[in-house]
Design a protein around this nucleic acid. Structure first.
Lengths: 339, 339
DNA sequence: TATTTTTACGCAAACGTTTGCGTAAAAATA
DNA sequence: TATTTTTACGCAAACGTTTGCGTAAAAATA
């Protein structure tokens, strides 16, 4: 078990002061060219790597950013993490990931943890449960840069990266109508989330713009966004006297639940019921029929969020900004034209 | 932007020495009961949180473990990360995740990065490309505890957590035979990986035990484990004069590729071709027909790997140990009995 | 009560960096 | 060549903890 070599080791070997070694290695002025080269060569030879704890202690900025995500096991979030991570690394930052498991209480713990590590900034996506934002306000009040993505809040004080939720839902419904569907149902999620509210509005507006009535019993609202909920919502919708001929589910996992329940009733997709979900690229092609989905550029969401955060870190005066990453409707078999 | 309060702040406020505060807060002896309580109360009131950089600097063990995984966007790995993370947290450790993106060169960088952070130990899964283990040997030689999972190496020097690969493949083939399939093909992966080699052996042994011939043209070997490869392998298999009536794909993403290609040829699963894949729970239920798969207890793999690592960290004399986490064959529609 | 032991604290050094300041030596200028 | 400026280094303090050691005061023992 060989100890890590320190600046002192190099200094001792070369008969110079540690401060000189530090300056040479960090490219600061005040050290002669020849000596600088000698120091660098020795550092390389001894495989010197700065001790991040010492650096973190002496500098007020240890170049770490924190992430708070609802869960890590869905492709949507892990792909966003990839985007954040790559951008962070490219700018000399490392990343610490915490998970709220969609729970408000755990989300608060995440903030504490990140705070303890002294992260320079935080990128967060709200948990499903979260409808009170005080814990995030505290972060902002402490001057810690904070950027939200997808499920956002405090947009007047924090930058955010969001999908064009209203438009995407509008477009999905428009597509269903164009393909001959007339009684289009909606399966929503926790209403306090911006994404839910916005997608709902897009759904309603699309119906209205096409002179279709908005039936409240075709809208299943304010449920947890789980596979189970998706199935339950469909049971509820199919129990109606006049059942829907298409469904917009505002979340991928809801859509998969819905699809499964529809199939178990021996109804055909897309002939009996058309189905549109939200998803990133991966899952939706595996199901049958392949699912028409609103698709996110997840990697880009991550990298843009990280960009915004780094900009804010480097300049506290930048104004909060909301970046919209356009989604696109990926049309597949589950909404094939009727007749 | 209020500064973090330090031990010194507390000491100053209470008129005691910083060392006393430290001892009181860490539960060490040598501080009176009354004073200890006063210090604790003040720490709570001022919301004192120890500076991890200072602690990391002064202690040789900053209680961080590192993870190296091939990618973060598949459920298999992110679920394992959950298992590791929860176990680590429960033991007062935090976790840093690095990604090799299935590339040997990047895997080496991961090790460097983790080394720089001075992690106390590393949990790793080999990248597809990796067939040379020197970089890991160096880690071991430096005395850094190292545990592998799933795709492993250096098992004589490092503990590992693996699936029962040989048995699982055997069982899958056995199941196919029992259901009337006779010409069973095999789609493998990069041969230097232990999981590939072992699953291949299980496949061969099951055929032999059932007195079925082992045809080498029914075995597609040594390909990258990607969706594309899955499709390509099936194209190759279906081009044979006598095509297979069942396929064992040794990886989930290969299986999905295979399924997609089979369907595009208008062949029926399971009637024309039976299909078994490897997967964790999530994806396989979404496809149609639902895929019979060898299923892993991913969360458990993670938590056991973390346990092994922590045990090794706390006692350098523990012997390397290989823990096998049993898989189970989840039988679904894709291998329904013929006739 | 006199001595020994224990308790309860503080002092100071250490972990590995960075950085402000000081100062010989070298270079530039007069 | 004499003076001023610049260069090239070293010293020492600092970041926020922990911990070995020392020592008064208190408690226990003789």
């Amino acid at each position: 078990m060989d100890k890590h070599v320190s600046i002192k080791d190099i200094a001792l070997k070369l008969g110079v002061a540690p401060s000189t070694v530090s300056r040479a290695l960090n490219g600061n002025s005040g050290v002669g060219k020849a000596l600088r080269e000698k120091i660098k060569a020795m550092a390389l030879k001894l495989n010197y790597k700065p001790n991040p704890f010492a650096v973190g202690l002496v500098k007020q900025t240890p170049h770490i950013i924190g992430i708070i995500i609802p869960d890590i096991v869905t492709h949507f979030y892990s792909s966003i993490i990839s985007g954040i991570g790559d951008t962070a690394r490219a700018n000399g930052y490392s990343v610490v990931i915490t998970t709220s498991y969609e729970q408000y209480e755990l989300e608060k713990h995440c903030i504490d943890d990140l705070n303890n590590i002294r992260v320079e900034g935080i990128i967060a996506c709200l948990s499903q449960e979260t409808s009170d934002y005080k814990h995030f306000e505290n972060v902002v009040n402490q001057g810690v840069p904070l950027v939200f993505f997808d499920r956002v809040c405090l947009t007047d004080r924090c930058s955010s990266v969001v999908a064009d939720n209203e438009r995407s839902a509008y477009q999905a419904v428009q597509h269903l109508i164009a393909n001959g569907y007339k009684r289009i149902a909606y399966i929503g999620g926790n209403e306090h989330l911006n994404i839910v509210d916005q997608r709902r509005r897009g759904y309603v507006r699309a119906l209205a713009d096409n002179c279709l009535p908005v039936y409240s019993d075709l809208m299943v609202d304010n449920l947890p966004m789980t596979y189970k909920s998706g199935r339950k919502a469909v049971r509820q919708l199919l129990a109606l006297r006049r059942r829907p001929d298409a469904i917009l589910a505002i979340n991928d996992i809801l859509a998969f639940g819905a699809m499964s329940e529809i199939k178990s009733r021996n109804l055909q997709i897309p002939t009996d019921i058309g189905l549109v979900g939200y998803s990133d690229e991966l899952h939706a092609t595996f199901v049958e029929p392949a699912l028409t989905t609103v698709t996110h550029h997840t990697y880009e969401i991550g990298s843009v969020a990280c960009d915004l955060l780094l900009r804010r870190i480097n300049d506290a005066t930048v104004k909060p900004k909301s970046v919209v990453i356009p989604t696109f409707l990926k049309i597949r078999a589950s909404t094939a034209k009727r007749r």
